[in-house]
Write a protein that binds this DNA or RNA. Structure first.
Length: 607
RNA sequence: GCCGAGCUAGCUCAGUUGGUCAGAGCGGCUGUUUCGUAAACAGCAGGUCGUCGGUUCAAAUCCGACGCUCGGCUCCA
């Protein structure tokens, strides 16, 4: 354990000590340190409130003031059971004791009157805890399983010094200011309206600009890499998804099927129950349509629509395809977890020999995006199949090949990656690029997935050099992941200060008075003609107010125009990053912006 | 879906123990001002206090149900 973890872990023991003093009937589960602090899971009939938290915190201060020493004691298993019974914590601690493998040391730590089954380690004395704070109460299932009782989890954090704690709390406050849900509203990027539906994003004009620019950008890269653009509808027949496996494997995560009116009437006539209907849908006795949960079956049908020679491969079909998934209501979150989203999707059909090269091409695309946007704080995960075999389709031999291909490709990234069993798609393993949002939650953005299974399920073939039919391998990939989630994360990445090429409004012309209105309109027209997104601030405010508004709305450039500029056919440039950049000829300004946009320059650090 | 918290003008929020409590700032509109690098001045308009029901002489305020949002948990092809 690092010293910081040790401190936090000790603080969680102090928390438990205090809870037992305030609520002696509390049954304790576990209280580990975590990345941002610590928690303790407790089972208590009384619903803890914010006031309770304050009470507990006060008691913790007393425990710390009591100058309690942490002492370790190793015991054998029988003694351990005895101790747990003696302290009346059988409910969870006996189970936790059973988790400790035979042969490993079993230890208890004691501070003051509090004794806890614990592997350690701890600080020497409670007085070493100089700065802590209890943060929130949340529900958490025992052992993380929905089938178990939900306990109350108390989150807190601790630091070596009060200054560090204060800095951390300040940092949390600052982070909230760049939350995409707040900025999305402030900058009018997107809207979620309950009348439309939970988790369904309405892209307002400003947000649509950002998305459109990103799509245009990636589309150009796709052309270079030999992709073909396709378009497919938002729904497909249920039978299609029975074949692909989406319906059987993920039916609970889909919007319910759309059933044809006549079929429904017939079923009603037969007195069909809901249970029977569900059964008929599963068995394929009746058909219907599904809002598409993934684009692959549609793309597969385009591939399958004509015979392919090995000379045609790889076939790369790309589409900004919108898909719908029935995410649990408690999971929905701004733009990052939604029920309808558009993937910058593509499916590559290739020979097994071509697979490594094609994966690399996909990874390169992801890297181009991340580099262009200056996103370097991400991690890479190779998602492998887990132990629950019912979740996956296909033969183990193919899975082995696909997993090996992913692993090899990930190695070429030249950065560390983790291999995580259970994180694969049902049809194959994947390489995911994962980024944290402002409050530390991780989101999967770009993904590259290797799939031997869907080609088999759809009986896809190509004719090889031997004039025999062969099975292609598929790659599913989405370098942005979804436009919604990516833009959500991007808003936070830039704190709303988009680079000029992405900024919804790139420049705003600020006439000092309406005496120069004519020239101001001339400047706007010139910039619009050059292809920029520019507006005119015609309010009768003083310049300071106009500049303030431009700054608050995070417009990259304010172009100030007064009598001098009008006379000289010039503009006074004030940038978001540098402030007043001085007067320059209008032509020079146009050229400056043109270069900045063409090179997709990143925002300079603000002075 | 589960546990907990919240919901008052477009936005951010104030409304003590139920009784001129329906308010402020910003934004918007109108007028005056014509202004040189982060907020000119004045006036006006805007809300059935999330929804529905209940308690009460009286409900933004108390109770219940529902909806949505937020923080976690679970889930995430």
């Amino acid at each position: 354990m690092t010293p910081l973890e040790e401190l936090r872990h000790s603080c969680s023991h102090v928390l438990a000590t205090a809870i037992l003093r305030v609520f002696p009937e509390t049954k304790l589960d576990i209280g580990p340190p975590i990345e941002t602090g610590f928690y303790y899971d407790v089972d208590l009939d009384h619903k803890l409130t914010a006031e309770d938290l304050a009470k507990i915190e006060a008691e913790m201060q007393k425990v710390i003031a009591e100058n309690q020493t942490f002492t370790r004691r190793e015991v054998n298993r029988d003694e351990a059971v005895g101790i747990i019974k003696k302290i009346g914590q059988e409910r969870y601690k006996i189970g936790r004791l059973a988790d400790i493998p035979e042969g490993e040391a079993i230890s208890f730590y004691q501070n003051g009157e509090f004794v806890d089954l614990c592997g350690g380690t701890h600080v020497k004395n409670t007085q070493e805890i100089k700065a802590f704070k209890l943060l929130t109460i949340a529900g958490a299932y025992h052992r993380g399983s929905e089938r178990n009782k939900q306990l109350q989890r108390i989150y807190g954090t601790a630091f070596p010094t009060p200054a560090e704690l204060a800095a951390y709390l300040h940092q949390i406050e600052q982070a909230k200011l760049r939350d995409h849900r707040k900025l999305g509203k402030d900058l009018k990027l997107f809207v979620i309206d309950d009348a439309v539906g939970q988790g369904l994003i309405l892209w307002a004009p400003a947000g649509a600009v950002v998305r459109q620019e990103l799509q245009t950008f990636i589309a150009a890269e796709l052309r270079k890499q030999g992709y073909h653009q396709v378009f497919t509808p938002h729904i497909g027949r249920l039978e299609l998804y029975r074949t692909s496996g989406h319906f059987p494997y993920y039916r609970d995560s889909q919007y319910p099927p759309i059933i044809e009116r006549e079929t429904l009437a017939q079923l009603a006539h037969e007195g069909c129950t809901c249970a029977q209907l569900a059964n008929k849908l599963t068995e394929g006795d009746i058909d219907g349509y599904l809002l598409k949960p993934m684009n692959c079956p549609h793309h597969i049908k385009i591939y399958a629509s004509q015979p392919h020679s090995y000379r045609d491969l790889p076939v790369r079909l790309a589409e900004f395809g919108t898909v719908y998934r029935w995410e649990q209501s408690g999971e929905l979150n701004g733009m990052t977890r939604v029920r309808g989203f558009t993937q910058d999707d593509a499916h590559l059909f290739c020979t097994e020999d071509q697979l490594p090269q094609e994966i690399l091409g996909c990874l390169a695309l992801v890297k181009i995006i991340l580099t262009t946007l200056g996103m370097s704080d991400y991690r890479v995960r190779v998602g492998l199949r887990g132990t629950d075999t019912a979740k996956y389709t296909g033969e183990p031999a193919n899975w082995d090949k696909a997993e090996a291909a992913c692993r090899e490709a990930a190695k070429t990234l030249g950065m560390p990656f983790t291999e995580e069993p259970g994180e694969a798609a049902f049809y194959g393993p994947k390489i995911d690029f994962i980024i944290k949002d402002v409050i530390g939650r991780e989101w999967q953005l770009g993904t590259v997935q290797v799939d031997y299974n869907l080609p088999q399920r759809f009986d896809l073939t190509y004719v090889g050099a031997d004039n025999q039919p062969h099975r292609p391998v598929m790659i599913h990939r989405a370098p942005f992941g979804s436009m919604e989630r990516f833009v959500g994360v991007l808003i936070e990445h830039f704190a709303g200060n988009f680079p000029t090429w992405l900024a919804p409004e790139q420049a705003r012309v600020l006439p000092i008075s309406d005496k120069v209105g004519d020239y101001a309109r001339e400047v706007v027209a010139r910039l619009k003609d050059a292809g920029f997104r520019v507006t005119l601030d015609e309010h009768s405010d003083k310049l300071g107010a106009k500049i303030r508004r431009t700054e608050v709305e995070k417009v990259p450039y304010a172009l100030v125009i007064g009598g001098k500029e009008a006379e000289a056919k010039a503009v006074s440039v004030r940038s978001r990053a540098k402030g007043d950049e001085g007067v320059m000829p209008l032509d020079a300004c146009v050229e400056k912006l043109r270069i900045e946009v063409a090179t997709r320059a990143l925002p300079e650090k603000r002075k």
